[in-house]
Nucleic acid binder design. Structure first.
Lengths: 214, 214
DNA sequence: TCAAAAGTGTTTCTCTTACACCCATGT
DNA sequence: ACATGGGTGTAAGAGAAACACTTTTGA
């Protein structure tokens, strides 16, 4: 499960006996559907619930078990986590400084980040990484972390509000000094965020950028 | 395997004993990697080779085997096909009028079309559905079938040529009356095709369109 | 000579970007 | 009073879409 904490991407890792860090997950029982198994593993091992779960990629090398990986999105430090059976500790860890995990898990995280970066601009993914009520500043922070790009505040607000992706939920919230921010909640509608800005940030030509992932 | 035939999307189906139509594929042996197994099944059962093979989606309902589906692209009526062991007939069938197949196969084809539509505009996928040498008219036809949209010839040619996606291969080819067309081959470079046109074709607002698949 | 497909530039318009200052509150 | 984050509009530029006619061949 990925989320944004302090403006940076973080992932939910579990520590198993013997100081072995890894992602939540494990063998799938014949009685469960894959999608259910993914959410169940997250709940059972980490006590966590995701705002969005979607399949990532299925890895299968000769002689190994098949691994079906999932991308989950959630809210670090806001929703509960609790170690389950076979788990010693559950922790959100910034991706800038990840714990030592298996190559397989590292690969999964890498694919997840790539997916997030490619998809966040189009789908209302950011909402899955925020609590029900949030400020536009928080929303922008999540987009910036997911996309790995700085966004222009005025353009961002104009586009987000015009799209109907969010709607005002009424109140305001003050956090320390500074003018209190209006609160928003998810609306109906979706949005494309700063296409050109994203391309330029990676300093790719439009053509190069288009072909990047596809 | 999908391809474009007579301006329409077509899929390669196999007929197994008992008049049972379906997609190439089957159980994976422990000794093969998934990606290899997909290409091997295509070759063994249909005698066909794809220009591009990529993983689509992994389905897994409770109590069923896990199905890892792949999207393959190829050239109908140009590359060889031959029924292999356990297969009575191999045939390209237009997707407008598909044979009776299992729900699972129908689902896979549906996901494949969706993926193709979402991806064709960005990635050099069209080249995988054409022979080595082709005309710009053929290339445009493939794009139109894959995207499900009509493209403007002059804009298309301008963009394709400017992008370096293709390069002239020297000769020309005449097919019936009409001016002979110059032949092209794959180049280095990629391209975005008619973004706005595609959105409008589905009569979605930009925002709606963006959120479509992601 | 006619039917059929290939090939070719320019103009308009929309969308994206860049950009700077005032507002409301906590300390 | 000042430091901190929230909030707001416009103008310039780039990219996409629309558009019609000439050319070359087979029949």
């Amino acid at each position: 499960m990925l989320g944004v904490r302090e403006g940076e991407l973080a992932a939910l890792f579990v520590r198993r006996p013997g100081n072995r860090w890894g992602l939540p997950g494990g063998a799938v029982e014949a009685s469960e559907a894959l999608d259910d198994a993914a959410e169940a593993a997250l709940a059972a091992q980490a006590g966590a619930t995701a705002g969005l779960v979607e399949q990532l990629y299925t890895f299968g090398a000769a002689g190994e078990d098949i691994r079906v990986t999932y991308l989950a999105l959630g809210t670090p430090d806001r929703s509960p986590i609790a170690p389950g059976p076979g788990v010693v500790e559950v922790r959100w860890v910034g991706l800038a400084d990840p714990p030592p995990v298996s190559d397989a898990d590292r690969q999964a995280v890498s694919v997840a980040r790539e997916r997030l970066r490619g998809k966040a601009a189009y789908a209302p993914i950011a909402l899955a990484m925020l609590p029900e009520s949030f400020t536009l500043g928080e929303l922008q922070t999540v987009y910036e972390a997911a996309l790995g790009v700085d966004l222009d505040t005025r353009n961002f607000r104009r586009d987000v509000l015009a799209s109907g992706l969010v709607e005002p939920s009424g109140g305001t919230r003050a956090s320390g000094p500074g003018r209190p921010a209006r609160l928003y909640q998810a609306g109906t509608g979706s949005l494309a965020i700063g296409e050109r800005e994203r391309r330029l940030a990676g300093s790719l030509s439009p053509a190069e950028w288009r072909g990047r992932e596809g």
